[in-house]
């Protein structure tokens, strides 16, 4: 009955009081997330926790809410219920969360009128980074660094987007379909970068409809939405 449901719900919320910080040694923790988009429930009762050097792979068919979950973790979307913690504080109250966050969306945020180097440099400046050259080198963009981005192929543009990961520091990497459109060499460059990042304690959450070669990763499958 509805009244019973309501009180049961309140009891559950009280139990998981969002103001109580997590006890484990986890750095990123999602607790009891639920998200409605428009008139659809994407997921509910979703929890996970990641410690240093750990990775989480989100998979599931297209439209199952992977991108929404990543954007939710980044703080671009508010969850319908539940909380995401970063270093023990809810992300929206954590002062340095945005400094620690490196978000690669499914769009590359590449300005066609700026050169490759200018593109990477802008986002690097915005996040207080100074490793533009290293980033360009790592993703083999050095030769085309002075080319306006409108001449690039989709794969090259994706690499320019990914170069942001290395151009500025960030402990948490959120990657939305990072390997789409990349050739084999670039994929290995990407996962090379991810390995190095995790080796120094970095966290990775990646979403992909297929599988990604993330070693020793937690896996979260979002089921298909029936309508």
């Amino acid at each position: 009955m509805p009244t019973a449901m309501l009180s049961e719900h309140h009891a559950r919320v009280a139990q998981n009081n969002p103001m109580v910080p997590p006890v484990s040694n986890s750095i990123l923790e999602a607790r009891d997330l639920a998200l409605w988009r428009g008139e659809r429930l994407l997921f509910q009762k979703l929890s996970f926790s990641l410690g240093a050097s750990e990775a989480l792979l989100l998979s599931g068919p297209n439209g199952s809410g992977k991108t929404s979950l990543l954007r939710l973790i980044a703080g671009l979307i508010r969850p319908t219920s539940g909380v995401v913690f970063w270093c023990g504080a809810p992300t929206n109250k954590h002062e340095r969360f945005h400094n620690d966050l490196n978000y690669i969306g499914h769009l590359d945020a590449v300005k066609p009128l700026l050169t490759v180097a200018e593109n990477v440099e802008f986002w690097s400046t915005l996040r207080g980074g100074d490793a533009v050259q290293e980033a360009l080198n790592h993703f083999c963009l050095r030769e085309i660094a002075n080319l306006p981005a409108r001449f690039l192929s989709a794969g090259q543009r994706r690499r320019v987007g990914l170069a942001r990961l290395l151009a500025a520091p960030g402990k948490l990497w959120l990657l939305d379909e990072p390997a789409v459109g990349l050739d084999e060499d670039s994929v290995s460059a990407l996962f090379d970068a991810i390995r190095k990042h995790r080796a120094v304690g970095g966290l990775v959450v990646a979403a992909s409809h297929g599988d990604l070669p993330l070693e020793n990763a937690q896996k979260l499958v979002l089921p298909e939405i029936h309508s």
């Binding site: 429930l41 997921f43 009762k45 792979l57 937690q218 896996k219």
Partner: peptide
């Protein structure tokens, strides 16, 4: 109608 409970994380 279809329940949308996400599958809990598991180790690969």
């Amino acid at each position: 109608r279809a329940s949308r409970v996400a599958i809990a994380p598991e180790r690969l």
